[in-house]
């Protein structure tokens, strides 16, 4: 059982990284980024391709991360340009279109066969209470934690972070106060692209899979973001880990294992039923 919990931590850490990124972007840019994991997968796969060609790990990873950042910033500027005054349904619809395009592009460039991604610290592991914990698990959890802490710090304690929050609350007012909207937007998208790529490289070396299976980490990540009500970074992190652990524990019994894929849905269901139990009206008066 404990082994399962530890195994769940690795996956849960991955969900947490993307869940937290989704929350950051939603709070700061008002968009739910369904492509958060795909953008990371681009970086991870590109890094792996370079690594296969004999690049060393760090420079391959750096280029991969840069690719993710560039894609993320491009999407962000597209949204700032076309949809800055659109309503939520339109932005969400546009984000879905972008996600479909990115998935298709990923299949095109990387095909959908599983490939190996360089393993960070191969073989490193230690034993706690009779359970083997791999270095990968620890790194994933550390990246998740570092994301929450660094993002929390930037947003609450720097002037740039304050301006970004101001944009997310009242973009026109922020602009009238001289805040450079495009530069700040690019910053937020770039940061989440960076986190997703770093996270994905770590995750992919831990849980190898095809391009689409990495991209589909978005489902549990969405459940994690939902647990954070698309607002709280730390709750989203806890939520991601929770989803990972519950998924892992659900394979404890073979009969449960069949329903493992439904865990994010069931958790989302419970969370939504709870948070939406009061009548809430649409925003416009």
């Amino acid at each position: 059982m404990l082994t399962l919990v530890v195994a769940g931590l690795a996956a849960g850490g991955a969900y947490a990284i993307f869940g937290v990124s989704i929350v950051v972007l939603h709070r700061m840019a008002g968009v739910v980024n369904f492509s958060q994991a795909v953008v990371g997968a681009f970086g991870a796969y590109f890094a792996a391709a370079l690594y296969d060609r004999g690049w060393n790990f760090l420079s391959a990873a750096a280029v991969g991360v840069a690719l993710s950042v560039a894609i993320s910033v491009a999407v962000g500027l597209l949204f700032a340009r076309l949809f800055s005054e659109a309503d939520g349904a339109v932005r969400t619809g546009a984000m879905i279109a972008v996600t479909v395009g990115l998935f298709a592009a990923g299949f095109r460039f990387f095909s959908d066969t599983p490939r190996s991604v360089p393993v960070i610290l191969p073989g490193a592991s230690f034993t706690v209470g009779g359970v083997v914990v791999t270095a990968g698990t620890i790194i994933v959890l550390l990246v998740a934690l570092a994301t929450v802490l660094s993002m929390g710090w930037v947003l609450s304690s720097t002037r740039v972070g304050t301006q970004v929050r101001a944009i997310s609350e009242l973009p026109v007012v922020a602009e009238l106060l001289g805040v450079p909207l495009f530069a700040r937007t690019a910053l937020v998208w770039g940061f989440t692209g960076l986190v997703s790529a770093v996270g994905m490289i770590v995750v992919a070396s831990n849980l190898p899979g095809s391009f689409s299976s990495l991209g589909f980490l978005i489902f549990p990540a969405m459940a994690a973001a939902l647990i954070g009500a698309f607002r709280s970074l730390s709750l989203a992190m806890v939520g991601g880990i929770l989803v990972g652990v519950v998924e892992a524990v659900s394979s404890y019994r073979p009969t449960w294992a069949e329903y493992r894929g439904a865990v994010p849905f069931l958790i989302a269901l419970v969370v939504l039923l709870w948070t939406q139990r009061h009548e809430v009206w649409d925003a416009a008066r």
């Binding site: 002037r159 301006q163 929050r165 101001a166 609350e169």
Partner: peptide, 19 residues
């Protein structure tokens, strides 16, 4: 603008820091 356009979830000081 009309209607006291403070950033509601920012503190007073943070509202000033934006500018």
């Amino acid at each position: 603008q009309q209607g006291r356009t403070v950033f509601p979830n920012l503190t007073v000081e943070e509202n000033f820091l934006v500018a």
